[in-house]
Design a protein around this nucleic acid. Structure first.
Length: 271
DNA sequence: ATGCGGACCTGTTAGC
DNA sequence: TGCTAACAGGTCCGCA
């Protein structure tokens, strides 16, 4: 489900419901996520006031007066604000019960998500420290991409999906941005001109921004914190459109596998 | 250092 | 209809 736009949509959806509230208790029903939910968060989080919800890459950071809860949605995770009394489903792995009768409920069938706790600067946490710049921030542009690509023979799609290069570009939007930039996903990153890298950086920003504006992409079960879908799917130009006509040149879209992930492109207008 | 494959899980869908 | 295989939005690790 979640790429950066979906995580940002989630952040905006839950923030008004949890900011300024106190966590009454934490109910963990399933500790086995991508990493085990640490025991100490059960002791540390209750009593904490949630000061704000930030996003770094695809991590959601819940800042409190005593530390920061780090949440990742993995492939299939979602967060919703529910009435505490609402009975949890089988894949509802934890609830942060708030002092107003609501609960922030985490659901994740595949359990690739995370709940961690840090008492120091979250940006220095081992999972976050090594991450590259935010694609919507000021440190990301074509010059940057071009410089980082020097000497790299990796396919550009895998290159832009590497979180150490730039964060938040997942499998859907990688294909979309490359189509927008007219670059073939399999092209070695180091063999792309500066001018084309500038186009690519611009497309990455534009695609992510547009997806955020539409509330993310709903493919299967992605839903907002209020249960409504995202509408960006209607604007996808290549993703999951194998055999359909390219919206730009009418050539049939092709699907290939790169880095073990489905990749969609137009063989005519992407070089 | 780089690039590749495998690993972690479960649910849904396509195909026979 | 029923079984099996392929596939799914992410990321980390270890090996060559």
């Amino acid at each position: 489900m979640p790429e950066l736009p979906e995580v940002e949509t989630t952040r905006c959806g839950i923030a008004p419901w949890i900011e300024g509230r106190q966590v009454a208790r934490l109910i963990v029903r399933q500790r086995k996520l991508r990493q085990p939910v640490p025991r100490r968060i059960d002791r540390m989080l209750p009593g904490c006031a949630i000061a704000g919800v930030r996003r770094r890459a695809k991590y959601l950071l819940l800042d409190t007066d005593k530390g920061t809860a780090i949440i990742h949605l993995g492939m299939s995770g979602s967060l919703r604000v529910v009435k505490h009394a609402e009975p949890p489903g089988y894949h509802d792995h934890f609830d942060m019960v708030l002092n107003d009768g609501n609960a922030l409920r985490f659901r994740d069938p595949r359990r690739f998500g995370l709940l961690l706790w840090t008492t120091s600067d979250a940006d220095r946490h081992p999972l976050i420290r090594h991450l590259g710049p935010e694609p919507l921030g000021g440190d990301f542009d074509g010059d940057y991409l071009y410089e980082r690509a020097r000497g790299r023979r990796l396919a550009v799609k895998n290159f832009i999906m590497d979180g150490r290069i730039v964060v938040g570009v997942g499998n859907i939007y990688a294909s979309e941005a490359l189509h927008g930039a007219g670059i073939r996903p399999s092209r070695p990153a180091g063999r792309i001109s500066l001018a084309r890298m500038e186009r690519l950086a611009g497309q990455i920003r534009d695609v992510l921004q547009a997806a955020i504006a539409e509330g993310g992409t709903t493919l299967r079960d992605f839903a907002h914190s209020d249960g409504s879908p995202g509408y960006f799917r209607q604007q996808l130009a290549v993703y999951d459109r194998e055999g359909h006509d390219c919206l730009r040149c009418a050539t049939p879209i092709r699907r290939v596998v790169l880095g073990q992930r489905s990749t969609y492109f137009c063989p005519a207008c992407q070089r």
